[in-house]
């Protein structure tokens, strides 16, 4: 693997409990944000760590700056209009920070 001469990390912008919205995008190359979750609003469940950006790694790039990765929790009933299950069912997706934007809390 390419020697990492300078590792830079994007500063962590979110904390567990924060409401976030997943950006809708198609950067035209390799990315790890599934289409079904784009545009959805959820809640940060955990910060998983800081990782090199796969959108750069996939083309031989250094993956810098590294991106905080969050486990984000979404209500299934909100993600899938046809969802067959109770309101307590959730889906959790690991999403890199640059795919997230702040969202208003419910009721705001």
């Amino acid at each position: 693997m390419t020697a990492m001469t300078a590792t830079t990390d994007a500063p962590t912008e979110y904390q567990p409990g924060d409401r976030v919205r997943v950006r809708v995008d198609n950067p035209g190359g390799h990315f790890r944000t599934p289409a079904y979750i784009q545009g959805q609003t959820g809640q940060v469940a955990a910060l998983c760590g800081v990782f090199a950006n796969p959108e750069s790694l996939a083309y031989g790039g250094p993956g810098q700056p590294r991106q905080p990765l969050y486990r984000v929790e979404f209500d299934q009933a909100q993600v899938w209009p046809e969802y067959r299950g109770p309101a307590s069912d959730k889906i959790l997706v690991d999403i890199y920070q640059h795919w997230l934007e702040p969202a208003a809390s419910p009721g705001e």
Partner: peptide, 14 residues
């Protein structure tokens, strides 16, 4: 051996 990365391989499959 540094000749292949997981994300490169995923991109190739895609």
């Amino acid at each position: 051996k540094g000749l292949r990365r997981t994300d490169e391989m995923r991109r190739a499959i895609e």
